[in-house]
Design a protein around this nucleic acid. Sequence first.
DNA 1: TAGCGGATGATAATAATTATCATCCACGAT
DNA 2: ATCGTGGATGATAATTATTATCATCCGCTA
Lengths: 161, 161
Amino acid sequence: MDRPTLISDKWRAGYAAERLAEFTARCRARGLAITPQRVAVMRVLVNSGDHPRAEAVFAKVRREYPNISLATVHRTLETLCAIGEARKVTPLHDSARYDGNTAPHHHVVCVRCRKIRDIEMPEFSDLLHGRQTLGGFQLLGCSVEVHALCRECRSAAAKEA
Amino acid sequence: MDRPTLISDKWRAGYAAERLAEFTARCRARGLAITPQRVAVMRVLVNSGDHPRAEAVFAKVRREYPNISLATVHRTLETLCAIGEARKVTPLHDSARYDGNTAPHHHVVCVRCRKIRDIEMPEFSDLLHGRQTLGGFQLLGCSVEVHALCRECRSAAAKEA
DNA sequence: TAGCGGATGATAATAATTATCATCCACGAT
DNA sequence: ATCGTGGATGATAATTATTATCATCCGCTA
C-alpha cells in the first residue's frame, strides 16, 4: 500500500552515520570552526527521524551541553541550511498566508522571497487521486506546495555566488 | 511553456465576484453575523491575486475602515478558514522545521497536528523533471509538500463533527 | 424597537526568532 | 606547544506574529 513510499528509518540511520563522518571535513572546507555545539546540533538533527523545530533540537542538545543557548541552536540551524547541510521543510513559517480561492489548486513558492503563485497542475491531482493514503496520511483535501526559485531570485542568487 | 499552468487573473476575477455574491448568504446559513468588517476582509482576500498575510489584508481593509483592529483581521481570517471560505497556504507557519536529510525527497504534512513524514514519491520528480519552469519559477532544487490528514487526526476530526 | 449574544477594538500576553554585545575558544601562525 | 585573532557562544534585549482578555458595541431575532 503506502509502505514503499515511506523512507525507512534503517536507511536514515545509515545515512546519518555517513553524513556525520563527513561533517567536520565539510566545515573545514568552508572555513567554519568545528565547535562542539555545532557538531552536537548537527548530530541531533541528522539523527532525528522527525522534522524538529529549534526548541526540540535545543532540548536534546541540552542534555549533553546544559549551557548551550537557544539562540545558538537557532543560529546553528540557519547556518546548516545556508551551507546546504540541512534545509527548512517550509520557507513560509514566518507568517501565515491566506488564500481566498477554495477551488482545488496547488502552489509554487519561491524559497528566497516567499512569493506564492497558484498553479493549475492536473498532473498532481491525477497522481494523488490514484492513492487513498500516503505514508499513513489521508489524502482527502490535500494540496501540493512546490518549493522553487522565482525568476528574480534566480538571477539575484546567481549574482551573489 | 508554463503559461497554461498559471491560474489566470481573469478567471480569478470572475471567481471573486461569484464568491462575494454568495458570502452573506453563507454566513447567514452558518449563523455568523454579517458585519462590515467581516465582509471587507473577505472581499480584500478574495480579490487578492497574491496570498496575503494578515498584515497586508489589514493595510487594505484599513483604507475603508480606519478603526479596524489588526486582531479582528487575524480573527476573521481564521474564521474564514474554519468555515471553509478560505484556507491557509501553509499549516507550518508557527515555527520553522528543519530536516537533516539533504537527499532529494518530499514531505507529507498533517494539516491538523503538523506531523511531517518524508516520502519517496518518484512520480513527483518524474512529473517535474519534465519541466524547467512552473509559472515562471525555476524548478531546480524544488521539493514538494503534500498537505493531508494523518490517521490519528482523521479519526479525531471525525468525532468532532 | 428592545435586548441578547456574538463581534469588535484596545491592550496585554505569549511565542518564535533575531539582534546586540561582551566573553570565549578554535585554529592558523609562530 | 603557545599566542593572537576572528569567528562562535551565552546572556539578554528587542522584534515580530499571533492569541487572549475584556469592556463596549451592534447585528439580528423576537
